[in-house]
Simulated scan of single mutants.
Amino acid sequence: MTILVVGASGATGKHVVEQLLKDQQKVRVIVRSPDKLPEHWKKNEQLSIIQGSVSDFTVNEMAEYIQGCQAVASCLGHSVNLKGLYGKPRRLVTDTVELLSHAIKKNDAGKPVKFVLMNTSGNRDRDLDEPISKRERLAIALLRLVLPPHVDNEKAADYLRTQVGQNSNFMEWVAVRPDGLVNEEHVTEYEVYPSPIRSAIFDAGTVSRINVGHFMAKLMEDQELWNKWKGQMPVIYSKTS
């Protein structure tokens, strides 16, 4: 299996790549600065490195990079600093989802390519009747005003839901919604639900980035797991004892 990972050098993206390489998959990564990648990645014959910024690629260029891939993972996110939160590009995640979708469609692989998007538990799945309190509605409305990355995450998932949809013949998708990301060294037990089981705003749980990376990798590798979650926005939590 050949898989393209965008945002591979990020805090979660690197765990997706590590898991895929551990499982002997062929991986292509797009990064701006290959020098920052782990040395063992550069020496791994299963890994191909494409240097560049995703926002600079045309649809034709991206189609070439995706050619021959059975799955694509987007782990892009906004940096947690003033430039990342309020600078350009404001639609980093959404524009990337659109670019990748158009490139996948252009290739016309003959069967749907799997697409996994890292999203956030603070974003509701509007295909489901997910309960939300008035207090949460107000808080999310405020987030939309003061935190552009939140709007970006919402629009990215909405593009998959409304523009790609459930019956595309070129792409199937899953938008993974982690809750309260933390750093851990090893994969631990985790739980996955169709919708949040707690308030992402006022009672957030936690999940390690390595667990998210493990789940995203297994989604692409395991057809049974993929069939269970395709076209959905599962929420992932690390299991507590």
Rank of each mutant, 00 (worst) to 15 (best):
L21C: 07
Q223C: 01
V113E: 01
A71V: 03
L138C: 02
P34Q: 14
Q70Y: 01
Y190E: 07
P196L: 11
S241E: 10
K14E: 05
I197Y: 13
S48C: 07
L76Y: 07
D125G: 09
R126D: 15
V97E: 02
A109T: 06
N44L: 04
D158F: 13
E64K: 15
H150G: 01
M216H: 12
K155P: 02
R126K: 11
R144E: 07
S199I: 01
N107G: 00
R32E: 07
N183A: 13
G165V: 04
R137E: 14
T96A: 12
D203I: 01
V113D: 12
T120R: 13
G180I: 00
G122H: 01
L82G: 12
P89G: 05
V17A: 09
Q25T: 10
N44E: 00
K155V: 06
T58R: 01
F170L: 10
I66Q: 03
A204T: 12
N81S: 14
I201G: 12
E18K: 15
V116I: 14
K106G: 02
M118Y: 04
S168W: 06
S121P: 10
E172R: 07
E224K: 12
K36S: 13
V146N: 11
W229M: 08
S195G: 11
V113M: 10
N123A: 14
H186C: 09
V182P: 10
A103N: 02
V27I: 05
L20P: 05
C69Q: 00
Q51P: 06
L100Y: 01
E154I: 15
R177I: 05
A200P: 03
K155T: 09
T188S: 14
V174N: 03
Q24S: 15
N167Y: 02
A175C: 02
E154A: 14
V182F: 03
R161P: 01
V80F: 15
S74G: 08
V17Y: 00
V5Q: 11
S199G: 07
D203H: 14
N123T: 13
K14G: 00
L37N: 02
P148S: 06
